[in-house]
Structures are given as C-alpha cells and as structure tokens.
Amino acid sequence: MPKIKMRQMESNQSGTISAVKAGGELGRRLRDMGLLPGSDITIQGRAPLKDPVALRIKGFTLTLRNNEAEFIEVEVN
C-alpha cells in the first residue's frame, strides 16, 4: 500500500496513519487527539477554500490545516 502525506489525500479516501512527524506543541496536540501511528482515518472533506481538511478518526471529526496535515504520513487503502 502506498504511503502519502495526509495533505495529498482526497475526499472519502481512507488509510492508516504510519507516522506523525511533528514535534512540539503541534505534535502533542495531534497525539492528544488520537492521531497516532496505527489509527485509521477517512478524509471527510475540505473547507470551501480547500483548507483546512476534515477527517474522521476514532468516531469523531477533526479538522487540521493543510500545513499541519503535511506532517502526517498515511498508508492509503
């Protein structure tokens, strides 16, 4: 299965997070929200101006800016 950055994922595309390469505050926030390697996600859509991105994880909806999604690597199905 190919690995791509979450930023490049399209609506309704699903996958499993393989790496979160952010440190500091962003890294911690992402982890606190459950964005960890091994978590399954589905892209729900993007805001009208294409940024931020909304995704489904662990049964809730989370939004991230594209430049934050850049740090997350996903193995897409």
């Binding site: 505050e25 926030r29 992402l30 929200m33 909304a54 809730f60 989370l62 939004t63 800016r65 934050e68």
Partner: peptide, 9 residues
Amino acid sequence: STPFVMELP
C-alpha cells in the same frame, strides 16, 4: 500560529 487541530462536534 497556534495549531488549529479542532474538533467538529
């Protein structure tokens, strides 16, 4: 900028 990382409840 503070990370956006926001829940859509």
